[in-house]
Computed example of a mutant assay.
Amino acid sequence: MGFLIAIGLVIILVLFWVSSYNSLVKYRNWVEESWAQIDVQLKRRFDLIPNLVETVKGYAKHEQETLAKVVELRNQITAPGSSRQEQIEANNELSGALRQLFALREAYPDLKASKNFNMLQEELSGTL
């Protein structure tokens, strides 16, 4: 009788372990999938940035520092070997630089009227 109880206990422990392991694998996959979705949105955002920079270059000749910073941060985020934390920090800096770039719109009325700039700004804002 004691032998059957021991076997039953072992079976219950094995089932508990298998269930816990499967749950942990499921949660790990969710995390990886979430990061993959974030990476897709960031890639989309990075693909839009050069178009925005080119659009602004034509209107804002005096704002080369802001444009250079946006390009530098974009390249820093996409650099191979950068950790998630470095990517997050660079992305936060990039958001600030893009806000400065969007603020140029007020200083340059022609830029404000540019349909291409407005479209790119709206698309980028949707991915932030």
Rank of each mutant, 00 (worst) to 15 (best):
A113V: 03
E122I: 04
E32G: 00
L42T: 09
G81V: 11
V10R: 00
E86W: 03
L111K: 01
V53H: 02
L15S: 12
S95H: 06
A97I: 01
Q100R: 12
P109F: 04
L4E: 08
L73V: 05
Y21K: 04
L73T: 03
L67P: 01
K43W: 09
N75V: 09
Q85M: 15
Q37W: 05
K61P: 06
S20R: 11
R84C: 03
I12S: 08
Q37V: 03
D47G: 07
E72P: 04
Q100E: 13
H62S: 15
Y21V: 06
G58Y: 13
S82R: 15
E89F: 06
A79W: 04
S34K: 14
E32N: 11
K43F: 12
R45K: 14
G126E: 07
E72L: 11
E86G: 05
Q87P: 01
L4M: 08
G2P: 09
N118Y: 01
S23P: 00
F102C: 05
D47K: 11
A113P: 01
E106D: 14
T78Y: 09
A90F: 06
L120K: 02
R44E: 14
Q76F: 10
K115N: 06
E63H: 11
S83M: 09
R84I: 14
P80L: 15
G8M: 06
N75A: 10
R99E: 13
M119R: 08
A60P: 02
V70Q: 02
R28I: 03
N75P: 05
V71G: 03
Y108R: 02
F46M: 11
E65T: 14
G126V: 04
N92F: 05
Q64M: 12
W35H: 13
S23Y: 10
L98D: 02
A103R: 11
Y27P: 00
A103G: 08
N92Y: 05
L48G: 06
W30V: 08
L15W: 12
S114W: 02
L111Q: 01
F117Y: 08
W17L: 15
S82N: 13
L73R: 03
Q87W: 04
F46W: 14
S125G: 15
K69R: 15
L120R: 02
Q121N: 08
N92P: 00
E33H: 10
L101E: 02
Q41T: 10
V10I: 11
K69S: 08
L9M: 08
K115V: 07
T66I: 15
L52S: 01
I12C: 09
I88P: 01
L94N: 03
Y21F: 14
E54H: 10
E123K: 14
A68I: 01
V53D: 02
S23A: 11
Y59F: 15
L104Y: 06
E33F: 09
I7E: 02
W35D: 07
E33G: 12
Q64I: 14
L124F: 07
F102N: 06
V70G: 02
G126T: 04
R84S: 08
E32L: 15
S23T: 10
L52H: 00
S82H: 09
L98C: 04
L124S: 07
K112A: 13
V18Y: 10
T127K: 08
K43Q: 14
N116D: 13
G2E: 15
A36Q: 09
N29G: 03
E32F: 10
G126S: 12
R105E: 14
S114R: 01
K61H: 11
P80S: 15
A90E: 04
Q100P: 00
S20W: 13
G126F: 04
I88Y: 09
A103L: 15
